Simulated assay, not measured.
Amino acid sequence: MAELLSDERIDEALAHLPRWERNGNAIQRTAELANFPQAIQVVNRIAEIAENENHHPDIDIRWRKLTFRLSTHSDGGITEKDVQLAGEIDGVIDAM
């Protein structure tokens, strides 16, 4: 089991992830891509990363708008796994 992050650590992490915000016991980000195929490319790449790390985000797909929600469900809140995956998601989106 991973250790839940303190409120202070979450705030610190979000200072380095400016496109993410806290939403209850999760962090989330919405990104708008150029078109639907590009949005699906992003989802597919993130799915590969998530599968390799065995840590999967909740993803809401609305045409070209994607919302990612990260929480370590097995631990009941936000862990370093979520912060790490958020950074990787940012990298994939920025690369598009």
Score class of each variant (00 low, 15 high):
14 L>M: 14
26 A>G: 09
40 I>Q: 08
16 H>S: 15
61 I>Q: 09
65 K>H: 13
47 A>H: 07
31 A>L: 12
80 E>F: 04
13 A>K: 05
12 E>K: 00
31 A>D: 15
11 D>S: 15
57 P>R: 02
40 I>V: 14
58 D>W: 01
73 H>R: 15
66 L>T: 02
59 I>V: 15
33 L>C: 13
64 R>M: 02
12 E>S: 07
82 D>K: 03
54 N>E: 10
34 A>H: 11
76 G>F: 09
61 I>F: 01
27 I>V: 15
92 V>I: 15
96 M>H: 07
23 N>R: 15
82 D>H: 01
29 R>M: 08
95 A>G: 10
50 A>K: 04
11 D>Q: 14
88 E>F: 09
56 H>N: 09
32 E>H: 10
2 A>W: 01
67 T>Y: 07
1 M>I: 11
5 L>E: 01
71 S>T: 15
26 A>W: 00
48 E>R: 14
86 A>D: 00
42 V>R: 01
9 R>C: 02
79 T>V: 07
6 S>C: 04
9 R>I: 10
68 F>L: 05
29 R>C: 09
5 L>W: 00
81 K>E: 05
57 P>C: 05
59 I>L: 11
51 E>G: 05
61 I>A: 11
41 Q>T: 02
38 Q>D: 15
56 H>W: 04
1 M>N: 09
42 V>W: 12
86 A>Q: 04
82 D>T: 10
42 V>E: 06
17 L>R: 05
76 G>R: 08
16 H>T: 08
23 N>Q: 10
24 G>W: 12
59 I>W: 14
90 D>Y: 00
31 A>Q: 12
33 L>R: 10
14 L>A: 07
51 E>T: 06
